[in-house]
Simulated assay, not measured.
Amino acid sequence: MTTLLLVGASGHGRVLADLGETLGFVGIAFVDDRWPEVTDNNGWPVIGATRDVVRLSGQYDAVVVSIGANEPRLALHRRLMEQGVAASTLVHPSAVISSRAEIGVGSVVLANVVVGAFATVGEAAILNTACTVDHDCRLADGVHISPGVHLAGQVHVGERTWIGIGTSVREGAVIGKGVVIGAGAAVVSDIADSVIATGVPARPRQIGGAAT
């Protein structure tokens, strides 16, 4: 593969463009709904809007949604797949992924990530710098595992959940969908859906928009 189309000219997009160069892509471009007002993303061209992805995708060897926020990234990934756009997966060469692990299409695995045996990662997920996902973990679509997060074995993480930088999660913990775990937390018990949880140990601070 030599050409890469990234959907979303964000900071996360710049990280993926840089990764693309590391992987040997030589033609890297963005589409973004701020086009034509925005035509450049730190030196990489912005050549159209998201409505143009289907038309442009045939001209590129790989297409990845590069939006950092979980919900819009997953929604756009699914919409493009339904429209026949084949999403690609980007994996940094320094990542260590077990041959018995599975990484879903449209996901990105950044530098120094470790994914253990029999772990599964869904589609359009972000495994950010130096996070570890131990054996038999189950990560649903659209999750973001931030830099330096450590998931012990058999952890389950629900769809669209964001686990903040430096968090540690106990073996076998179940974290629901749409959850936000604050930076540096220690998750030692299950976390319900749609919760913001912070602290050591992590405790729910907000549920369904209401303070607790």
Rank of each mutant, 00 (worst) to 15 (best):
P201I: 04
G8H: 05
I97S: 00
H135P: 05
E37D: 13
E123L: 07
V65Y: 02
R160W: 06
G182P: 13
V143W: 03
G182Y: 07
V174S: 12
V64W: 03
A130M: 10
I196C: 04
G199W: 04
A210V: 15
E102R: 11
L4V: 15
P45R: 12
R55H: 08
V108W: 04
I145E: 02
H92D: 14
D52Q: 06
S99Y: 01
S66Y: 05
Q83Y: 05
A9M: 02
V38E: 08
R34N: 08
P147Y: 03
V169G: 10
F25S: 02
W35V: 01
I28T: 02
G68T: 08
D61A: 06
L56W: 03
V96E: 10
V15F: 04
T3R: 09
I165H: 06
V180G: 06
A130G: 08
V85A: 02
N70R: 00
I191K: 01
D134C: 12
A211V: 15
G199H: 07
S94M: 04
D134R: 06
A62D: 12
R170Y: 03
R34H: 09
R138P: 12
L5S: 07
I47F: 05
V114G: 04
A29S: 14
G172I: 14
Q206G: 00
E37P: 10
V195Y: 07
V31Y: 04
R160V: 13
G142S: 13
C131W: 00
G164F: 03
P201S: 08
S146F: 03
N128S: 09
S10Q: 05
V143R: 01
V157N: 00
G199D: 04
H135M: 08
F30A: 01
E71Q: 11
E21V: 15
V65H: 00
E123H: 15
T22K: 14
D134P: 10
I165T: 15
I181Y: 00
V46Y: 09
T198F: 14
V169D: 09
A202F: 15
V105H: 05
A197M: 03
L127C: 10
I191M: 02
G208V: 14
P93D: 07
A9W: 05
A211C: 14
H92K: 00
H135F: 11
E21M: 08
A95G: 13
V108T: 15
R51Y: 10
F30I: 09
H12Q: 12
V85Y: 02
G8D: 10
